[in-house]
């Protein structure tokens, strides 16, 4: 094992000549990462390549690849020219930003409230985590039932309490479907933010908080000037992980509404899925994926910076 020196001046100059020699010296090290890399290559590199290729072709619904026809950028032109694309894009951004923001804030609130020990804290924390752990499919069904337009419990409650004459439509109405789904999504995700931030809170040095107290800071000031800055790293990681998960989320929308009514709840993933496996327009779906991929990759820069923060060097730069 080599101990990495803390300070390595002149490394860059030494590198070009020796990289293969160094690789040879360290050849045994690669054995440790080889399985991970092989699996990743098969299931990730190959599909990425394939998606890009498919996006330039028209492939028959049967997905017989030998019959595909090269169409250049036609698929991309069709997508960017359609109104649905822009609607779905807007939906996706609303969905991602609002879900992430709400989950983070609620998670932070819970983490703060549960930081100080009190009787019943462990039980409360365990209960608050459950929505994150249970199957998203189960969660989607539970909420679909709760939102049910005839027998849903929320609608019934509103009627019983006199807020509404008849049960309102939650997920069958173009106007309310997206907010209703976001509620479900936040319900599922805020516990993750809570766990991450609770872990982060434990690293806030007690001495600093005591110093703040001695300096006369109240609860708000010691949170804002001591605790919150300490949570910066965790917060960035949490928000990025949540944002990526929301960008890529599928189950809640797919099961509860399938993207409807009238595309009002479609986000990119569900829309692409429908184009591919519903309408079998593989080329368009692939082109969509590539566009999505490019957008996500630009976010990826921040993601790597955030998660790899400990490494400092930032491989993406």
């Amino acid at each position: 094992m080599t101990i990495r020196p803390t300070e390595v001046p002149a490394r860059a100059t030494a590198r070009p000549a020796g990289v293969f020699r160094r690789a040879w010296i360290h050849r045994a090290d690669y054995l440790y990462v080889l399985p991970a890399i092989v699996v990743m290559l098969i299931v990730i590199a190959y599909p990425v390549y394939y998606t890009i290729e498919l996006s330039f072709y028209n492939t028959p619904p049967s997905l017989q690849l030998r019959d595909k026809i090269f169409v250049g950028f036609d698929n991309y032109a069709i997508i960017l020219g359609s109104d649905v694309f822009w609607q779905v894009t807007l939906n996706t951004f609303i969905w991602t930003i609002v879900s992430t923001g709400c989950a983070y804030i609620l998670g932070l609130g819970c983490a703060l409230c549960l930081h100080r020990a009190f009787p019943g804290r462990a039980v409360m924390r365990a209960i608050l985590i459950i929505p994150w752990v249970i199957s998203a499919v189960a969660a989607a069904y539970i909420w679909k039932w709760i939102y049910h337009s005839n027998f849903g419990v929320i609608g019934a409650l509103l009627v019983e309490l006199g807020f509404a004459g008849r049960p309102p439509n939650f997920i069958d109405s173009v106007n309310s479907v997206l907010p209703s789904l976001i509620v479900v999504n936040v319900w599922r995700e805020f516990p993750f933010a809570m766990i991450m931030l609770a872990a982060g809170l434990q690293t806030v040095p007690d001495q600093l908080l005591r110093a703040a107290k001695v300096d006369g800071a109240g609860a708000w000031h010691s949170f804002w000037h001591v605790t919150f800055p300490h949570l910066r790293g965790v917060s960035i990681a949490t928000i990025l992980l949540l944002a990526v998960a929301n960008f890529n989320s599928f189950i809640v929308t797919w099961i509860m509404t399938g993207g409807g009514p009238a595309n009002a709840s479609h986000i990119w993933i569900t829309h692409i899925y429908e184009i591919a496996f519903g309408r079998q327009r593989w080329g368009i779906a692939a082109a969509y994926s590539v566009i999505l991929f490019l957008i996500v990759m630009s976010l990826g820069y921040f993601y790597v910076r955030g998660l790899g923060g400990a490494e400092k060097e930032g491989g993406a730069s």
């Binding site: 990462v33 991970a36 890399i37 990743m40 098969i42 299931v43 990730i44 190959y46 599909p47 990425v48 390549y49 394939y50 998606t51 498919l54 997905l63 690849l65 992980l241 990526v244 960008f247 890529n248 599928f250 990119w268 993933i269 692409i272 899925y273 591919a276 496996f277 593989w282 779906a285 692939a286 994926s289 590539v290 999505l292 991929f293 996500v296 990759m297 976010l299 990826g300 993601y303 790597v304 998660l307 790899g308 490494e311 060097e313 491989g315 993406a316």
Partner: peptide, 25 residues
């Protein structure tokens, strides 16, 4: 470092990107 960041970057790819090619694979 390159390999580590490639591994991390995996999380960025939406599942849908993989769906059709993996289906074919």
């Amino acid at each position: 470092k390159f390999l580590f960041f490639s591994v991390l970057l995996r999380n960025m790819f939406p599942a849908v990107v993989f769906l059709v090619p993996l289906f074919i694979l």
